[in-house]
Amino acid sequence: METLTRVKVLEPAHPNKSTAIFGGKASGILNWNDLAYPHFHNLRQTIRSLFWTANEVDMTQDVKQFSTLTKAEQDAFLKIIGLLATLDGPQTTIAMKIADYTTDPSVKSIMATIADQESEHNHSYAYVLSSVTDLAKQMKSFEMGRTDEVLMRRNSRIVKVYNEFAAQPTIENALKSMVYTTLLEGLFFYSGFAFFYNLARNQKMVGTSTMISYINRDELQHGKAISDIFRAALAENPAYNTDAFTEWIYEQFKHSVEQEIIWSRYVLVDIAGIDLDEMEGYIKYRSNKMLRMLGLSEIYPEFTDNPMKWIRAYVDNIDDTKTDFFEQKSRQYVKTSDLNGFDDL
């Protein structure tokens, strides 16, 4: 396998329009009106239009409510924030690494935009925790990703694939890292998201849930962008479009679904209002959606429809009507100029 080289900043002898996503030629001059894949401009525009920052979300009521949650809810809250931080931190890095090796400047720009948003996601978890609990519990939550055995087993394959791309940046490893990026963006977060949405529909921790909705909305668009780039890169490199690679993808999806189900039953077992069988169906439904985005067939034909209907009120769907968060009666989005709205306490 040929190892990709880090792309130079400028190559004036090369054309402005990239000749390939990986291993091609491009000057480094980005003209959005002269792209190899014109719709990549729309991908970036959509992602950019979602801009938000964590400290715009009012956490006043969450500060008051956290201590009133049940012990099971508090434990799940901290564990799930730990999971999300564990996954979103590396997402900033992997987007930047893909940017380092892509020879298409429009892809580089998209990855830079995604990296910036993932960085804000990671910041938002620290913001939430600093709002609702003490420093010791904040630190413990962020230690979850390297100390909790269930979480470590769950994340072991994504760690392997990402680190293999970092150590050996080949086209094959770039494709594999994008498969896992779509899994992360479109599947790995969703039992955690469901937990926060379940709190919100019971009028609990609405500020946190609102922020999670914005993160969820971002992740859906990131997954769409990465899957489009993956399909374009695979079409450019048909030698990798093999039955063996397709089977590898299916096997990773099946494994990831299994691990997400194990995780959901571990972290949500004592949470009132969440049916774990329904959650399992939702995970399989999400898996089918992400496979379709990659251009592959569904592996769970009995879950082509969303079995967790109530969650639609909280989630932006790429192929469904988008929720206007300002119109949701069960949540409020309030910009505040002071950190966490403490002046309102």
Rank of each mutant, 00 (worst) to 15 (best):
T3C: 07
L4G: 03
T5N: 13
R6F: 07
P12S: 07
P12W: 11
H14M: 14
P15K: 08
A20D: 01
K25P: 08
A26V: 09
A26M: 05
S27M: 10
S27Q: 08
S27P: 04
A36W: 05
Y37A: 00
P38E: 02
H39V: 13
F40I: 10
F40W: 07
H41W: 15
L43M: 07
L43R: 06
Q45I: 09
T46G: 14
I47W: 14
W52L: 01
T53Y: 13
N55V: 11
T60N: 06
Q61C: 03
F66C: 00
S67V: 04
L69G: 05
K71C: 04
A72G: 04
E73I: 09
Q74P: 02
Q74N: 02
D75M: 02
I80Y: 03
I80K: 00
I81T: 08
L84V: 14
A85F: 14
T86N: 04
T86K: 10
G89R: 15
T92E: 10
T93P: 06
I94T: 09
A95I: 08
K97A: 07
I98V: 12
Y101F: 11
Y101C: 05
T102Q: 03
T103I: 05
V107N: 05
K108I: 00
K108H: 14
I110Q: 07
A112S: 12
A112I: 13
A115I: 03
E118W: 00
V128Q: 01
T133G: 05
A136I: 08
Q138C: 08
Q138A: 13
K140P: 02
E143T: 09
M144I: 09
D148F: 15
V150Q: 06
L151N: 05
M152R: 04
R154T: 07
V159M: 08
V161I: 07
V161Q: 02
A167G: 15
A167N: 13
Q168E: 12
T170K: 00
T170V: 04
T170D: 00
T170R: 02
L175M: 03
V179R: 12
T181M: 15
L184F: 09
G186L: 05
F193D: 03
F195D: 02
F196K: 02
Y197S: 02
N198H: 02
R201L: 01
R201Q: 12
Q203K: 13
E219N: 04
Q221F: 14
K224D: 09
K224L: 13
I226L: 03
I226N: 10
D228R: 11
R231Y: 11
A235M: 12
P238K: 01
A239H: 06
E247H: 09
W248Q: 02
Y250H: 04
Y250P: 01
F253Q: 04
V257M: 04
E258T: 10
E258K: 10
S264Q: 06
R265S: 02
I271E: 04
G273C: 06
G273P: 00
D277K: 11
E278I: 08
E280L: 04
E280M: 08
I283D: 00
I283A: 00
Y285K: 11
N288V: 03
L291W: 04
L291M: 07
R292H: 11
L296N: 14
S297N: 15
F303R: 12
P307E: 01
A313D: 15
D319Q: 15
D320A: 12
T321R: 13
T323V: 08
D324R: 02
F325K: 15
E327L: 10
K329S: 13
Q332L: 11
K335L: 14
T336Y: 11
T336G: 01
S337N: 13
G341Y: 00
D344V: 11
